[in-house]
Computed example of a mutant assay.
Amino acid sequence: MAGSGETSEARALGEALAALRRDCGLSQAEAGARIGMTGQGWGLYEAGKRSSLFRPDVQRRLTGALGATPEALMLQAPGGAAVSTDRPKTSHPDNAPAHGLSARGRAFEGAASDVRRLRLETDELAPWASAGTVLEYALGRWPRRGQGCVIQLQDGLRKVRLYDRADEAEMVVLGAGALDRSERIARSDVQSVSAVISRLDDA
């Protein structure tokens, strides 16, 4: 059974998550849907009833759905960054490659430097975007349904697709040769997912 200290920390972390969600103007169901979770499941995290909320990978996934970071979650919690996690922060230095579905919050200074560009080489996403189109994507920002995304795989390959949905085991995307063709990608094969924020078509 968890001690009262751990229970209060879990509650504080859950309240911080709820505050971040409200700042985004999302319901629990809407936030959960972004990562393939029910609103009830999301609510258990906000109520401090899931101890896995202390895990850095879970924090990255939840805050990524809100366009934020685990650091933002810590700062939102009462007492700032006083709420502890199971792993030291040095386990994921800023210059290390991002693993899992991490995100950098748009509210932090320097967030604009996390916007990258990519030129499409094929027409497999037409008419959404054709060969020669330059896509700007926010590194690590989780996409909404129907939004373009850049998927970096663990084996080094990169795919540009339209996001459909995801759950714990896999994510489903569209655009593997045709916009009406779905593709399933195992979450364990994904290093990062980044939302496309603009398309710059050649004149």
Rank of each mutant, 00 (worst) to 15 (best):
172 V>W: 08
126 A>C: 03
123 D>R: 02
161 R>W: 04
35 I>F: 06
149 C>S: 07
121 E>Q: 15
168 E>D: 15
9 E>Q: 14
53 L>H: 10
202 D>F: 15
30 E>R: 14
68 A>Q: 14
34 R>K: 09
122 T>R: 07
98 A>P: 08
84 S>I: 09
55 R>G: 02
171 M>Y: 06
153 L>T: 01
72 A>C: 11
139 L>V: 09
65 A>H: 10
49 K>F: 09
108 F>N: 01
2 A>F: 15
67 G>R: 01
16 A>T: 03
145 R>Y: 06
170 E>C: 10
108 F>L: 14
41 G>T: 11
17 L>Q: 00
43 G>H: 02
152 Q>T: 12
54 F>S: 04
125 L>G: 00
173 V>L: 04
12 A>M: 08
111 A>C: 11
196 V>P: 07
156 G>F: 03
180 D>Y: 12
88 P>F: 06
56 P>I: 08
73 L>W: 15
22 R>F: 00
51 S>L: 04
151 I>K: 02
142 W>P: 01
100 G>I: 05
83 V>R: 05
128 W>I: 01
172 V>Y: 02
165 R>F: 13
187 R>Q: 07
13 L>V: 04
125 L>E: 02
29 A>V: 11
64 G>R: 13
164 D>W: 13
45 Y>D: 03
24 C>G: 01
18 A>F: 13
166 A>G: 00
80 G>T: 06
127 P>R: 02
51 S>K: 05
67 G>P: 07
190 V>M: 08
130 S>T: 09
61 R>T: 02
189 D>H: 15
162 L>K: 08
31 A>N: 02
201 D>N: 11
139 L>F: 06
9 E>S: 12
15 E>V: 06
48 G>I: 04
49 K>L: 14
90 T>I: 15
105 G>V: 09
95 N>V: 08
91 S>C: 13
112 A>V: 06
10 A>M: 13
159 K>A: 09
176 A>N: 06
186 A>K: 10
11 R>E: 13
105 G>S: 14
93 P>I: 13
72 A>R: 11
3 G>S: 15
40 Q>L: 03
